[in-house]
């Protein structure tokens, strides 16, 4: 059962206090988008074995959504950060690259 530190209130909490929200940094496609774009937004997920960016809500705490970078195999947590961004912070990406040299990057 994993633990994450909520970047908004600073509490380190266990999984039972969190609600999972799937893959992070999805770009919403609304009216006017192609079928392929909409399908990709609604259904296609990376589901990687390794570095993953995901959404979590501190449901039993401050109620805020935040994002986490985590290794889906070892459960190492590289970092958490507020949800108000379209891509992971550069320093976090650099940290992950240093720890996982073969990682291809988040895109």
């Amino acid at each position: 059962m994993l633990t994450l530190t909520c970047p908004l209130c600073g509490a380190t909490v266990e999984e039972t206090e969190l609600a999972p929200g799937g893959e992070a940094h999805l770009k919403r496609f609304g009216p006017g988008s192609s079928d392929a774009e909409f399908e990709s937004y609604m259904f296609n997920r990376k589901n990687p074995k390794g570095v993953h960016f995901e959404r979590w809500r501190h449901a039993y705490g401050c109620g805020k959504w935040f994002l986490a970078a985590r290794d889906t195999v070892t459960w190492e947590v590289f970092g958490t950060y507020p949800a108000q961004t379209t891509e992971p912070p550069a320093d976090l990406v650099a940290k992950i690259k240093a720890k996982r040299p073969t990682w291809e990057g988040y895109k």
Binding site: C9, A11, T16, Y60, C62
Partner: peptide, 10 residues
Amino acid sequence: MHRTRAAQVA
């Protein structure tokens, strides 16, 4: 002020 859960409720 610690927000958490009491068994199954907030």
